[in-house]
């Protein structure tokens, strides 16, 4: 096993252990309430980056996948009584299928047209949910989440640990994609689709795979959300702010490597949460906009490039 992989696995192990221990060590549940949102954005940014960062297809429809995960999970839990892990798994599978379908319809177009098409997905899905009474329609639906298990001291802590596991799994998946043949192929597609195809890369299939993986992660990020808020409604679940953050966080952290979206999400989501509590919930969006403009103008490679970090997929001489 390569040294980098060993270090990554060790870090994953430590983070997971902390995720189970911290709820017993930190008494104030508010930190876990806030931490959930930060981890949710780590997952969203990581999922978005698999298609947007590695393959260069800018997806404005992250909220569509997230909202689908939210509603599918809420529906399966309230009507069928499925346990939370199965709800998350079902959301991920649904997200993957939605990703393939969306990809199949939109991947033949590129650039701004692809972005607009994915933006349309959010509007379509939100409108559909608005008109399904079994999902509560425009007024939404209440979701009474599962009782926290014995290994967790409360609902906030439980939601936090569940989101942490999803975030860690997503980051591990993104890292695998990045350093494997999938990531190399996607980066080749990003550089030159014709050259990639003529080098033997099945570009359409690879992009569909990226859509599926990205969609699965984005939908999985939304699956525990109903249990976090106890209430879901379409405007929040399909909020364009989710789509904006999904793009802003990887761009700020850096899109070349799995660490960029993690860094961007940790930074931006934390600052947003602090701004929400200390200043105003509206001002934090202004902050996102300003930071995004600053990075696009002065550090287009994100924090990772600013500090000179190279993609981890690079071979050594």
């Amino acid at each position: 096993m390569r040294k980098n992989s060993f270090l990554f696995l060790a870090a994953v192990g430590i983070v997971l252990v902390l995720g189970f221990l911290l709820p017993w060590m930190v008494r104030n549940p508010f930190y876990f309430f806030v931490g959930y949102v930060v981890l949710q954005y780590v997952t969203i940014a990581t999922g978005w980056n698999i298609l947007g960062g590695y393959a260069g297809y800018i997806n404005f429809g992250a909220a569509g996948f997230f909202g689908s995960g939210v509603y599918l999970s809420a529906f399966l839990f309230t009507t069928l009584g499925l346990p939370l892990p199965l709800c998350i798994l079902a959301a991920a599978i649904f997200g993957a299928i939605l990703g393939v379908l969306t990809g199949y319809l939109t991947l033949r177009i590129q650039g701004v047209y692809f972005a607009i098409a994915t933006l349309g997905l959010v509007v379509v899905l939100e409108t559909i949910v608005h008109n399904i009474s079994a999902l509560g329609g425009a007024s939404g639906m209440a979701v009474y989440g599962p009782r926290p298990p014995a290994w967790s001291p409360g609902p906030s802590q439980y939601n936090f640990t569940v989101m942490l596991i999803i975030a860690v799994a997503s980051v591990a998946l993104a890292r695998f994609v990045e350093i494997s043949w999938i990531g190399r192929g996607l980066r080749a597609v990003k550089a030159s689709e014709d050259a990639a195809e003529c080098s033997g890369v099945p570009t359409l299939r690879l992009k569909l795979l990226a859509c599926a993986l990205s969609g699965a992660v984005l939908a999985a990020a939304g699956a525990p959300y109903p249990f976090y808020t106890s209430y879901v409604e379409p405007v929040t679940a399909f909020s364009l702010i989710i789509g904006l953050n999904a793009i802003a966080m990887p761009l700020i952290g850096g899109t070349k490597s799995w660490s960029g979206p993690v860094l961007g999400a940790l930074l931006l989501a934390s600052v947003q949460q602090i701004a929400t509590v200390t200043i105003s919930s509206e001002l934090n969006i202004l902050f996102v906009g300003l930071v995004l403009i600053a990075f696009v103008a002065f550090a287009p490679g994100g924090l990772a490039d600013l500090f000179g970090r190279k993609p981890s997929g690079g071979a050594k001489p």
Binding site: R184, A188, A191, A195, S199, G200, V201, P311, A315
Partner: peptide
């Protein structure tokens, strides 16, 4: 049409 963002070696690992 090099695969920019990759090293020279990685460019050949793609095919």
């Amino acid at each position: 049409r090099p695969f920019n963002g990759m090293t020279v070696l990685e460019n050949l690992l793609v095919p």
